[in-house]
Design a protein around this nucleic acid. Sequence first.
DNA 1: AAAAATAACTTGTATATACAAGTTTAATTG
DNA 2: CAATTAAACTTGTATATACAAGTTATTTTT
Lengths: 236, 236
Amino acid sequence: MAQTIPHYRKLYEILRKHIVDGVYKEGDLLPSENELCSVYNITRPTVRQALYALVNDGYIKKQQGKGSIVHALPKGIGILSIAGTTSALGGKNLETRIIKKPSVVPWEENFFFKLSDTEIESGCIKLVRLRLFNGKPIFYDINYLPNINLPRFTSRNFRNKSLFDILRVSYGIEVKGGEQKIRAIRASAEISRYLGVQAGHPILHLERKFDTNRFGYYFYSSIFCNTENQAVFGIF
Amino acid sequence: MAQTIPHYRKLYEILRKHIVDGVYKEGDLLPSENELCSVYNITRPTVRQALYALVNDGYIKKQQGKGSIVHALPKGIGILSIAGTTSALGGKNLETRIIKKPSVVPWEENFFFKLSDTEIESGCIKLVRLRLFNGKPIFYDINYLPNINLPRFTSRNFRNKSLFDILRVSYGIEVKGGEQKIRAIRASAEISRYLGVQAGHPILHLERKFDTNRFGYYFYSSIFCNTENQAVFGIF
DNA sequence: AAAAATAACTTGTATATACAAGTTTAATTG
DNA sequence: CAATTAAACTTGTATATACAAGTTATTTTT
């Protein structure tokens, strides 16, 4: 065992996987809290912590007196929640092209989120990608990561790989939440070329700040999204 | 006392109010969990339940070993979270005009969320509003409520009143969460007229389904938002 | 057979306690 | 004085328990 994973986290992962795999289907009831207690040999507050996380992530709904009801799996692009695009789309029909390999650059003037002095001094690793779903370009995203303790990051291969996964596996950085600003804009000439739409076409623009388990370490994405054929989906 | 409000809920409201009122400012630490225990005479799990709700709503962040750190208050329009538009904008500079008074109509064909048989049979109360922020039209929203046990709803006055508040105060219906689909679209002739933009102007379109404390009762909003001057904001 | 009361389940709230793990401050040591 | 160590704080995880409140199934009564 590398490190101890909390019991509630393990149960969360188990139940989540069961729901995603269809063991429990939409409208089904999960085993009652007391059943989960005896099956996994943990106490009810711990079970409830796992269930509460599932509620938070939109997998179940709870009803007093009845139980934990499995929620319909999101059908659109679940980019609004905490998941990265790869897991949001299932990864199957997703292709990622690198438009600009990661390189260290100074931060842009008037960055869309307020930066700390440390972040500004460290410089910024910029990575530009195009993501295609079923062969059609859907996302054009520019990613900005403070250049703090990310050895060999710029020489990594990102093609068809999840940024979230690389950060987690190689650097132990996990995304815990964040904030975002959303606008509808006209596609610029460059964006329209990449997304395969006419210039001036309405585009969804998301500016996101990701909060991580590494204290004080944030990273940022500016995402241009063609929502003509597929809406962006979220729960709240 | 009308009904018993849970202790954790009371503490949540107290701390939330203090943060909003500026008693605790951005970056400040809330009193420690043990301090809150002794001040309010409750135990730590109860205190933690309140703090966890504050984390969930984006008011604080927690750091192990340090404490509960007050988060910056959202500056954009916090419509993506659970709050209704009124509370999201502070209500101060918000004006609500009724475009179409609430009336019972059949549900539209191909409604943007799947409806149950009960919902379809009951019919739909439709209410169309225009919401202005600092005198400028920002939201054009169409609200759809299943016509189930909402006495005198169609004869109520909604001008400059919060739909959420009316549902809560008059009918005991509280919004608990929901799901939404987001797109960038071109403004239609009608929308552009109401929002004061040129036809074809990019508009943010949100289709939302609200989940309530009344089991099985949902209501729906289709919101057209001019994000030219103000982005829509959300935490996740 | 239908209605009402009861029992058996479910989740919601709350207490009391314990130790682990991360952060800060104070004391000790060199 | 500087570096290290220890203590005192913080939040994180977990157990064990109790009763309230909502839902469903059963039993009893009418």
